[in-house]
Structures are given as structure tokens and as C-alpha cells.
């Protein structure tokens, strides 16, 4: 995906042709062309990627674990509450159980949308700091 938006950079072919591209920022690679990981880690782009990941993943993970373990604990320790009828033969426990399916699917879709919109472009930005895509 990031590959598609990069300008052609084959040096042999580009030489001699005038381009209007701004020269990119210096690549974070060492003399042998290997990525300089410490420099990448300290770059603003990578720190932003790390922040965006943490902002979603940390609360989401703690949230779903709490909701699931809470549900299990409720079933184990408050069976009367979970057995209360809601509609027909369907009780609170059954509704909460089905809600676990709903929240799992919901969170899965939410994360994959977040990753597509907020993480993937940032990964591409970090990857553009190295010669990775052009090799």
C-alpha cells in the first residue's frame, strides 16, 4: 500500500531527469543501508505510532478483560441476579452472554477500522524513514 504512493526512485533511471520532488528527509539508515533502529524509535513519527496504538489497545484490552471476567464472576457469585427473567425464558445471564458475542464482534470491527485509518498510514510514515520500501 505505501509502496504505491512512493515516487520511482531507481537511481540508475532517475539520473539526468529533472524532478520537482522535494528532497525527502535524510533516511534513518547506517552506511550499509541497514535501518538505524534507535533513531527510528526516537523519531516523532514512531512515537506517534506508539501513542496511537497504546491509546486504543490499552483501554480496549483492559475493558474487554474486565467485562468478560466480571460476567464470569457474576455468573459464579450472583446466580439469582443472572437467573432473573427478562423476556420469555430468556434471563439476564443469557442476555449478558449474548452481549459478550456482540461486544467481541463490535470491538473486533472497531479495532480493524481504527487500525486501517489511524495505524496503517502511520506505519507507512515510519517505514518511509528507511530505505525499506525502495529495496
Amino acid at each position: 500500500m505505501a509502496k504505491a504512493i512512493l515516487p520511482p526512485t531507481d537511481p540508475g533511471r532517475a539520473r539526468g531527469f529533472a524532478t520537482f520532488e522535494e528532497p525527502g528527509p535524510p533516511l534513518l539508515v547506517d552506511e550499509a543501508g541497514r535501518p538505524d533502529y534507535a533513531a527510528i524509535r526516537d523519531s516523532a513519527d514512531f512515537r506517534e505510532l506508539r501513542r496511537r496504538t497504546a491509546v486504543f489497545v490499552l483501554p480496549a484490552t483492559l475493558g474487554f478483560l474486565a467485562w468478560y471476567l466480571g460476567y464470569v464472576a457474576l455468573s459464579a457469585y450472583l446466580p439469582e441476579f443472572m437467573g432473573a427473567k427478562v423476556y420469555g425464558m430468556i434471563n439476564v445471564g443469557m442476555v449478558f452472554g449474548l452481549l459478550q458475542f456482540v461486544t467481541t464482534i463490535g470491538l473486533t470491527l472497531l479495532y480493524s477500522r481504527y487500525a486501517r485509518r489511524r495505524l496503517d498510514p502511520q506505519v507507512a510514515a515510519v517505514r518511509a524513514l528507511t530505505a525499506e520500501e525502495r529495496a
Binding site: 486504543f56 489497545v57 474487554f64 459478550q100 458475542f101 467481541t104
Partner: peptide
């Protein structure tokens, strides 16, 4: 009954761990 259903839910929820981490 219900307790059997309870058992199966953990296996669905657990995939969130695989997905996000």
C-alpha cells in the same frame, strides 16, 4: 444448560487478545 454456554464464551472473547496484542 447455562454453564455449558458460559464455557464457550471464553473461546470467542479470547480472540480479542490475539487481534490487538
Amino acid at each position: 444448560g447455562y454453564d455449558g454456554f458460559l464455557y464457550s464464551i471464553g473461546w470467542v472473547v479470547s480472540w480479542l487478545m490475539g487481534l490487538m496484542i
